[in-house]
Design a protein around this nucleic acid. Structure first.
Length: 499
RNA sequence: GACCGGGUAGCUCAGUGGUAGAGCAUCGCACUUUUAAUGCGAGGGUCGCGGGUUCGAUCCCCGCCCCGGUUACCA
């Protein structure tokens, strides 16, 4: 029998013995007077004399993290996930059955305890147990207490184990919860209405990405998991909902990396009468506010970097960024004009050693130069603005430059954290943009946007001037929790199936 | 997809072409204020999977699986 089988058999046997003692082995309810974190927070600073004088009684519960046994005197450490407390279990202070049951407890079991608070000789804040109540068995041995669980694969596949033994992991997800709560509060306080739009869509639009496909049986209809909620949210603005947001899970059938999980969370919002400049100011405020509420300040550490979330953020036009990086790389001044024509842009990309799809326009190539040369250098928060129209089929052109749209992306710590633009609301221009995308699709670009007649029809009813933005919540959580991989901030990241 | 690193006890890790190692955990004994409790004793292994070389493979070779990283594709 392997060590694990042996330990499981032993724990099962202990459970059987508990049942024989007449202990209910899967009880239904347990009423606590305090949680452990309450107990420690309220009384953890009391001195020995104060505790002796007050004789504070408590009933609490948690998982057993360790058992130190001296025969007739024993110490348990219980955790409720947020705090730990020691329990002193003394044979002559418990009902005999409780003490017999105690001896059948294993590391990892859930128990309740009744008793009063005191400090031991070594001044440890402790519950002096008068009753022990068995709550649930841990049949499988938990990871070791000292080294914890470091195996990354197990941490992702069995996140519950990671959460039991790695307090840092727990903290990441608590911070994530605070970030989402702070974002929601931020938006609501500014008069935005939280809405929910379809995750299953007949046309996967609103972004340039490959979708997951599914099928509805009763309707015999193919559907896609959304790649973005964008087109539905703007339909709502057509309907007169001037300020809407959705905290949305979206799905993209693309590669997996430290920055990409197939399903990910965005906060996307639309504001009528605003343009992308409005949103830059709002985004600066949003980032600083979220940082303060989630981690208590607007200065953070991310890997080797110190990052300030304080406004104002740097601003950099995309073409300038690409041109300057290309000039630096090639050691010569690249003229502005070279990024405006597809032939000169392609030649430039070739000199830089970048491969571009044949038939790519100047805008696509400029975007690629930016991505490969600039993205990961943008450590302090930076708005990269004014994107090529070609790569932005849903954004509004600048009034003086039809090849450029009013769009920005926010980069922090080398991560693309937000993407925003003044929304294209001219239905005829929107149709031309979709048609250009269809040409790109016909050339093999599987991420090109599809024609969405229903969306064009909505625009025909009139979308007021509007600006919209998507904020990548997973990446924001990475930044604010100093996590190097998106999988560290998603409770159950997608893993390959395993037998 | 390519390249690099990894997969050995429940956990954390060492190791060798010749019977598989440690600490923690587990089991037994002792112990009524410990702090990774301690002391003594014991059990626990498909060395990721499959093939090959060899008298003999956990180790060398080939293929595959899984994980991580880099890179490519990809907004």
């Amino acid at each position: 029998m392997s060590s694990q089988e042996e330990q499981i058999a032993q724990r099962r046997a202990n459970l059987g013995e508990l049942a024989k003692l007449g202990v209910e082995i899967y009880p239904r309810r347990f009423d606590r007077r305090h949680t452990i974190v309450d107990l420690v927070g309220r009384y953890g600073e009391r001195t020995r004399n104060e505790l002796e004088g007050e004789r504070i009684e408590t009933t609490t519960s948690g998982r057993i993290l360790s058992i130190r046994s001296f025969g007739k005197a024993n110490f348990l450490v219980l955790s409720d996930g947020l705090a730990k407390v020691q329990v002193y279990v003394r044979q002559d202070s418990l009902p005999p059955r409780d003490f017999q049951a105690f001896k059948l407890l294993d590391f990892g079991d859930w128990v309740g305890v009744e008793g009063h608070l005191f400090r031991t000789k070594t001044n440890e804040f402790t519950i002096f147990a008068a009753r022990l109540i068995f709550l649930a068995k841990c049949l499988v041995p938990l990871p070791e207490k000292w080294h914890g669980l470091t195996d990354i694969e197990t941490r992702y596949r069995q996140r519950y184990l990671d959460l039991v033994v790695n307090p840092d992991s727990r903290r990441v997800f608590e911070t994530r919860g605070r970030i989402v709560a702070a974002l929601r509060a931020f938006m609501t306080a500014r008069g935005f209405l939280e809405v929910e739009t379809p995750m299953m869509q007949p046309i996967a639009g609103g972004a340039l990405a490959r979708p997951f496909k599914t099928h509805h049986n009763a309707l015999d209809m193919d559907l896609y998991l959304r790649i973005a909620p964008e087109l539905y949210l703007k339909r709502l603005t057509v309907g007169g909902l001037e300020k809407v947001f959705e905290i949305n899970r979206s799905f993209r059938n693309e590669g997996i990396s430290t920055q990409h999980n197939p399903e990910f969370t965005m906060m996307e919002f639309y504001e009528a009468y605003a343009d992308y400049r409005t949103l830059m100011a709002m985004t600066e405020d949003m980032m600083a506010t979220i940082a303060r509420q989630a981690v208590g300040g607007d200065q953070i550490s991310f890997g080797e970097h110190r990052i300030s979330f304080g406004a104002p953020f740097a601003r950099l036009s995309l073409r300038d960024a690409a041109r300057e990086a290309a000039s630096r790389r090639l050691g010569r001044e690249v003229p502005h004009a070279d990024l405006r024509r597809s032939d000169t842009a392609a030649a430039l990309a070739h000199q830089l050693g970048l491969e571009v799809r044949s038939g790519s326009g100047a805008g696509t190539i400029t975007g690629e130069i930016f991505e490969s040369l600039c993205e990961d250098r943008l450590i302090q928060p930076t708005f990269v603005y004014d994107f090529p129209t070609e790569v932005s089929p849903l954004a509004k052109q600048k009034s003086d430059d039809p090849d450029t749209v009013e769009r920005f992306e926010l980069y922090i710590g080398g991560l693309e954290v937000a993407n925003a633009f003044s929304e294209l609301n001219d239905p005829e221009e929107q149709r031309r943009r979709f048609e250009a995308q269809l040409v790109s699709r016909a050339r093999g670009n599987l991420e090109a946007h599809e024609m969405d007649e229903d969306y064009i029809r909505a625009l025909e009813y009139g979308l007021p001037p509007t600006a919209g933005e998507g904020v990548g919540i997973d990446r924001l959580v990475m930044l604010l929790t100093d996590s190097p991989s998106i999988r560290d901030v998603i409770l159950f990241p997608l893993m390959r199936k395993r037998e």
